[in-house]
Design a protein around this nucleic acid. Structure first.
Lengths: 262, 262
DNA sequence: CGGCTTCTTGATCAAGGTCAACCTTTGTGG
DNA sequence: CCACAAAGGTTGACCTTGATCAAGAAGCCG
């Protein structure tokens, strides 16, 4: 199912998977803590932007670098990653996309997506007509501001990641990334106890923290041997988040308060 | 002149320097190519947000990490840097702020600035009342969208920087940074021929590309010896931008077209 | 002319990359 | 249900890159 054909003829290739279509009014995402509660008119407007549900298999691209797209997507289920591919073929994962996140704004506003977004697991997306964004800004200014605030939070994550790559060692970077993901998963109710599903390959993890796969393994081992974090059989376990935070210098992101996701 | 006192009592500590106050209508920035042309009502609204001009000496902070601020600033003249300080005292420069850039949006929207902004040279700022942003979103939705687009471009720069730090060697990183700055300076008419004023200290450059000062020197030397770029007495010279681009793999940012700054 | 900061470089060392091998898990067809 | 293949995980040996430290050279200001 090539999504690449979708962008040009809007709404034609509706990839309904077997599951019933998701209706905004009852969208499960809205029940998460951390989500801004929509006003009736906001909800109505956004419902009107919705084009279709899309399902992609792991490894498929939602966006490719340089590709324009008249869509913006909300990730409904599964994990994805924003990434940049360098001229020498190496890849840098910029950020992980979790359920509830909005992607593709840059692609629409800048005319072409500056990065690719790839599914790490099978995912389900909600496709929204980006061309109605100007109308949204006109009709729902406070939603527009919330959107901007969410973007600032995303940028803040990027800034932090940048500081990590520039200034911290392998273990700290990794520890930090795990904590950040833990915090984001918690906001969405996807990380309840001390461990959770963590469907990220070693190589992808390495690409996210700027390490080689071999060295990532060494870092992972050290965290395991210190009892700070363990990653096995697709499960991440963090026995004591505070200790891990202390180890990584997580302090540099002061906000662990629940923040509005969208 | 501690700006730190400014945030609480809005508009009282107007730091007029000796130069006459800048009026939005005739603001020199608006004459730069690359700047979006304001409609009459947009200009009027923004004029209404303006609180005062502020002048800071090199080394002073516009924002400090964690500090809330009811202001948003436009950099009118000089260079500044967004930076993050880690718990071990090291610093990462996230981005350079050039004339025409807007800073402080994150600080306002997130309640506290997630990064600091420090003057690298003496600077002049235009202080805007951030508390009128919701009203701006209501009254001027298309300006709000332009603001969002500018933020996306800033984020794209961050993403690129992240990929550089994670995946490229010292020289390429440096080369890339210089090219990016060159491009941004050109948009503003601040880099006309093959060289320009470049008031960034070695240590700051090192903090921006994630290297030690010593190693930055080595990278700088290599670029010099290859005739790709030279930095001496506060002047940056790039004899052949194309060659430098080829060397650094600048390709990874496709957009060198003139983009609207605000 | 000192006394400061910034620049510059070399010597040494540690962090992380590369490569190659081997082990586990998962998935598939018989 | 097993056998085998393919993909991903894990580790060690060795080498490259960049950090650290220390010392000297230039600028820059009072």
């Amino acid at each position: 199912m090539p999504l690449s054909s979708l962008p040009t003829d809007l709404g034609i290739h509706a990839h309904h998977d077997s599951a019933p279509p998701v209706v905004c009014d009852t969208c499960a995402l809205r029940r998460c803590t951390g989500f801004r509660s929509f006003s009736k008119s906001e909800l109505q407007f956004v419902s009107g932007m919705k084009c279709c549900d899309v399902a992609l298999a792991a490894g498929e691209d939602v966006f490719r670098e340089g590709q324009p797209s008249p869509f913006v997507f909300t990730l409904y289920e599964g994990w994805a990653a924003r990434a940049l591919t360098l001229s020498d073929g190496t890849r840098q994962i910029l950020d992980f996309v979790l359920p509830g996140d909005l992607i593709g704004l840059a692609g629409y506003l800048l005319g072409a997506s500056p990065h690719s977004v790839r599914a790490l697991t099978p995912i389900r997306l909600c496709a929204l007509d980006a061309r109605q964004l100007p109308a949204l800004f006109r009709a729902e200014p406070s939603l527009a501001m919330a959107l901007m605030a969410a973007r600032m939070r995303e940028q803040q994550r990027g800034d932090t990641r940048l500081a990590l790559l520039g200034r911290l060692g392998a273990c700290e970077r990794l520890a930090y990334l795990l904590l950040e993901l833990r915090a984001r998963l918690r906001e969405r109710g996807l990380f309840e106890g001390r461990s959770c599903r963590f469907p990220v390959r070693r190589l992808q993890l390495a690409d996210a923290v700027g390490l080689s796969k071999a060295h990532l393994m060494r870092a992972l081992r050290e965290l395991r041997e210190r009892g700070l974090a363990e990653l096995a059989r697709g499960m991440l376990t963090i026995p004591n988040a505070r200790k891990l935070a202390q180890f990584s210098g997580y302090a540099l992101v002061p906000s662990s308060e629940p923040s509005t996701i969208l």
